[in-house]
């Protein structure tokens, strides 16, 4: 009897096929889904992307940020600024926003990485507040009351309304796929292994010669860039931006944290499940407004206390499932 070491499992191979088929069906949504459903699905994809990115930071790199709204809002504002004043095509502006966010995140990281643990979290919030207050001072972008995307810019995306809606939908779907794949491939890479080592034990990881600070910086920069791109996409759909909406801690961080915690932090599957649960709850309970948010907070607390690995953690422990094969398994060979 011999054994081999493998990452893939039957579940993960089946999962890949199912995911590819599902992706095809979803990509064809403009031909089978209604306008409202497409909007909702687009929103789901963007939240899914934010959740995956936050999960990479908090669940894998130990960077628990409550200030990612800084980059969501920054991406949104850059879309407006670069199209209105720079004359860029909206998609180019969104990509440029990601690049600018990456550049901006380096000096920010050198500052707030000095704060440890929970203080790091509040530090990121301060940064987000600095962004919000600063953009509120820019009168050309409407100051505190914000501004709308000019019709010309909107039309440059696609001439017809249905064309724009399909494009927005595909952009959101594409963004989600790219984010999930990037996070997955990153975690499988040498860097990803380093990250897992850091999460398991910082002391041991530094003993193995892993530059912890640098690895965390890379994660911070990459997630910031992606988050800004997602922010650009969000506000390209909303067509209107204001400092309070762009840098909302509830919309872009609280919900995202709840999604990841409920789904399962530190797992790739968690954000996907969390996003589905979150939207299912929202679509059924949204009429209750504040009660809905209280329920959401309560569910997150109960999950954190009773099942810290979330819904996916419960499922995985019971069935030994892994849809994204990250761990190595030793398997008997006949």
């Amino acid at each position: 009897m011999s054994a081999r070491v493998t990452r893939s499992t039957r579940a993960s191979r089946v999962g890949t096929v199912v995911a590819a088929l599902a992706l095809l069906v979803l990509a064809a949504a403009p031909w089978w889904a209604g306008r409202a459903d497409m909007r909702l699905m687009g929103e789901i994809y963007l939240y899914l992307s934010l959740a995956c990115l936050w999960n990479l930071m908090a669940g894998y790199a130990g960077l628990v940020s409550v200030g990612q709204q800084a980059f969501v809002g920054f991406g949104g504002y850059m879309l407006f600024a670069l199209t209105i004043f720079g004359g860029l095509h909206p998609i180019a502006a969104i990509l440029a926003a990601g690049l600018l966010a990456a550049m901006l995140s380096v000096p920010i990281a050198t500052l707030i990485f000095r704060l440890k643990g929970a203080y790091f979290a509040i530090g990121t919030w301060v940064i987000a507040e600095v962004f919000r207050l600063s953009f509120a001072q820019i009168q050309a972008l409407g100051g505190g009351s914000g501004s709308s995307l000019p019709v010309g810019v909107v039309k440059s995306l696609a001439a017809s309304r249905s064309g724009r809606e399909a494009l927005s939908y595909w952009l959101a779907l594409g963004a989600a796929v790219i984010v999930i794949l990037s996070v997955y491939l990153f975690l499988r890479s040498r860097r990803g292994l380093a990250l897992t080592a850091i999460r398991d034990s910082e002391v041991a990881a530094s003993g193995l010669g892993i530059d912890i600070w640098r690895t965390k910086l890379e994660v911070y920069v990459v997630t910031s860039a992606f988050t800004a791109v997602i922010g650009g996409l969000i506000f390209s759909q909303k067509l209107r931006i204001s400092p309070d909406a762009a840098f909302s801690v509830n919309d872009w961080t609280a919900f995202v944290i709840f999604i990841v915690v409920i789904g399962g932090i530190g797992t790739l599957e968690g954000p996907i499940i969390g996003t589905l649960v979150f939207f299912a709850l929202r679509e059924t309970l949204a009429d209750f407004g504040t009660i809905y948010l209280m329920v959401l907070g309560l569910v997150a607390i109960v999950v954190m206390l009773k099942a810290p690995k979330g819904i996916w953690g419960l499922v995985r422990d019971r069935f030994d499932l892994e849809l994204f094969p990250l761990s190595y398994r030793v398997r008997k060979r006949d």
Partner: peptide, 9 residues
């Protein structure tokens, strides 16, 4: 995360 949830509640 628990105190964050508490804050929202």
């Amino acid at each position: 995360l628990v105190t964050f949830g508490l804050s929202v509640i």
